[in-house]
């Protein structure tokens, strides 16, 4: 009886149509309520608001990030106890640098950190302000400091996340990016306990950026490397994404996805280990499945969940064409 209906809506409709009695409907509703699928959905929905750690634990790989979180958590706890017992407690400098290729989880982790640090009472608001060069650098002399300070002000109590931070150092001596960096450094000292600054960017560029600005790296005690995902991690990510959305792959679709990711990794260096690419493929496959199902006959619970080899192929034809275009454009 448990799997007979896919939603409570369906039960109400069946009752209204006269296909089931009220007693049967109530039974079905009760079953629906206690079925694990619903429980899982409830849990998913409640996570972001109340447990960032669980959210983090759900991310595949990223072992160094998880270790760091454990350290910070322990430190924050101990500091709190020290404070209670009247011992000196140190405030923790948590400015960070995230290095890694696109799609390796930098932004995702930053967003979770905001919530997490709020839960650990390291930050009082825990919001994440995501900015890039254009938000910080101004158009005329003196404008930059003003704009940067504005962003810093917005981020007080939370995280200021600067994506592609190395671009602040590009453009040479006269570039306003330098002014932005100086303002940031000042702000880091002024709001030491109220703000966490995260600079993120590609590995090579970030390393160069820090070399050029030696004062910076000493101010960022935490440097996190986001390695490319391995092939098996990418598969795990795909499976997690699908199961969270209540879809599943047929075994031939699994094989198809595997060889596809392997090929991409071999051929396009930059996108190797890119989780965003996987997400795009999965989301496109889900849309392809919808297109296929709309055209097909009657639907059932199983059909709605299964993603076939055809869906994956249709989804990736588009992707690889797009990727080829981009690759060519970059070569030019």
């Amino acid at each position: 009886m448990g799997s007979k209906f896919s939603s409570t809506r369906e039960i109400y409709q069946e009752l209204a149509k006269g296909n089931i009695t009220a007693v049967e409907a109530i039974h079905a509703l009760k079953v629906m309520q206690s079925s694990p699928a619903n429980v899982a959905v409830d849990r998913l929905e409640s996570v972001p608001s109340d447990n960032a750690k669980e959210e983090l634990a759900k991310l595949i790989g990223l072992k160094n990030v998880k270790n760091l979180v454990r350290e910070i958590e322990a430190f924050a706890k101990i500091q709190r106890v020290r404070q209670q017992l009247g011992l000196k407690s140190e405030s923790l400098v948590l400015h960070m640098i995230f290095k890694g290729n696109p799609g390796t989880g930098k932004t995702t982790v930053a967003r979770i950190f905001g919530q997490l640090f709020k839960e650990l009472e390291v930050l009082n608001k825990g919001h994440v302000v995501e900015v890039e060069r254009a938000d910080l650098v101004g158009e005329y002399i003196g404008h930059t400091a003003q704009r940067t300070r504005e962003q810093v002000k917005k981020a007080v109590g939370g995280i200021l996340f600067i994506d592609e931070a190395y671009s602040l150092a590009r453009g040479g001596e006269k570039d306003f990016g330098k002014e932005a960096i100086d303002t940031l450094v000042k702000a880091m000292e002024d709001h030491k306990d109220e703000i966490i600054l995260i600079l993120a960017g590609y590995r090579r560029e970030m390393e160069q950026f820090l070399r050029i600005n030696p004062g910076l790296s000493s101010r960022f005690p935490i440097i996190l490397d986001f390695p490319d995902y391995s092939l098996s991690e990418l598969i795990q990510i795909a499976e997690l994404m699908l199961s969270q959305r209540e879809y599943s792959l047929t075994s031939s679709a699994q094989n198809c996805l595997f060889s596809l990711l392997k090929n991409l990794g071999d051929n396009y260096d930059e996108n190797r280990g890119n989780a965003r690419l996987v997400r795009n493929i999965i989301e496109r496959a889900i849309r392809q499945q919808a297109v296929r199902l709309v055209a097909s006959g009657p639907l059932n619970r199983e059909k709605l969940q299964v993603i076939t080899e055809g869906d994956i192929k249709a989804a990736t034809e588009e992707t690889s064409a797009q990727m080829f275009n981009r690759w060519q454009a970059e070569r030019r």
Partner: peptide, 10 residues
Amino acid sequence: VRAAMAQTLE
């Protein structure tokens, strides 16, 4: 009546 019962349960 059937639709009304469904509405009640909802």
